[in-house]
Design a protein around this nucleic acid. Structure first.
Lengths: 193, 193
DNA sequence: TCAGTTAAGTACTAATCGGTTCAGAACTCT
DNA sequence: AGAGTTCTGAACCGATTAGTACTTAACTGA
């Protein structure tokens, strides 16, 4: 009942996500967001709440879309395969010509003013969560004998996340997939037997 | 001649640097900057030009101060020592309680709106420059027989920079020096003979 | 047909953004 | 003691910020 919505909520959210990805949370103004979404501010507020909630939904969509490689990687049969899939996925997403360079979760709000502390904290949690899931997967690998008994799952997960973040910054800096794949190889050289 | 300046230009710049470090370029407002510097906007404009030039000078100061570990690392006698000093320096600076967490050059403007493209590009160059200097140092190491003849200086430098950037993000995420030092160890496992 | 409901577009808010103008105040040189 | 120069602080600038009121348009169910 009532007047039907004239725009596609998913498509508009996808476009908003890309703006946040390219500009960061604070760098993305409502004017630019709504222009990209093809709707007015009024429609945005009615459909998503406010800028912060729009970002939260955009981040969710990012996790289910461009960043889905994390979840996929966790399903690989061996710890080593998980690690490689994770890093190659990061390279692929951060350098894809279909989206902005870099990682939304990294450039969204690494540093920010006080007003957007909530978004800053949200991203800290989001980034840490990926590390926790990797850690759990590596712990299982130790239990299964896939990783040596003296391997430290937490250290391995943190190292993977660190290289992943580094890849995101390098991608934002202009490095392409070929160069970043070499970095993945270098990072895997120290992988436990 | 004329009325003497009532504030210490270096000290005010140091304080501005820390604000940029914590907030990023766009996240640092003139109001917060000048409040931290202890001067009015007028004095800031007279002494430094404008916000962008203030940031450029702050970045210079950052390079000569907190980020001086890069230059120091290059002077180590062996390539391996250079790499370790570089990464440990990154850990030290990004987790120091004396300054904000993370790296000014990373969180300064990874993503930004169009207006601050100049600052964005400046930071891209600044970050790349460190990589180039590492690469040259590693190339020399190959020439001197310090690194094996088949080692790739550019790849090694890029890997170091990637881990360094990752460390900066992890520090901004709340990881401390002890945990990050473990990451440095992990990164060095694949170092060529 | 018409009441009820919801969306869209315009025009607006108060606050803040980076940046400037201008009137004094504080100094040096003659 | 001037005159000339430079700094400080407050008041001000237009533009932009996120966020809203309000009118009009488009639909559904009775």
């Amino acid at each position: 009942m009532g007047r039907p919505r004239e725009f596609d909520v998913d498509q508009a959210l996808e476009r908003a996500m890309r703006v946040f990805w390219a500009r960061g949370y604070e760098g993305a103004s409502l004017a630019e967001l709504t222009r990209a979404m093809g709707i007015t501010k009024t429609s945005m507020y009615a459909a998503y709440g406010n800028k912060e909630q729009l970002f939260r939904k955009a981040l969710q969509r990012y996790g289910a879309g461009p960043a889905a490689y994390v979840t996929r990687a966790l399903k690989e049969p061996t710890a080593r395969a998980v690690a490689v899939a994770f890093l190659r996925g990061a390279v692929c997403t951060t350098t894809s010509p279909d989206g902005p360079s870099g990682c939304l979760a990294v450039q969204g709000a690494l540093a920010s003013s006080d007003e957007s502390r909530a978004v800053h904290d949200l991203l800290v949690d989001w980034r840490n969560d990926a590390g926790v899931r990797l850690e759990e997967r590596f712990r299982r690998a130790v239990d299964e004998g896939d990783l040596p008994r003296d391997a430290d799952p937490r250290r391995l997960a943190r190292f993977m996340m660190t290289v992943g973040f580094g890849i995101a910054v390098q991608a934002a800096n202009g490095l392409g997939p070929a160069e970043l794949d070499e970095i993945v190889d270098a990072a895997m050289l120290g992988w436990p037997a």
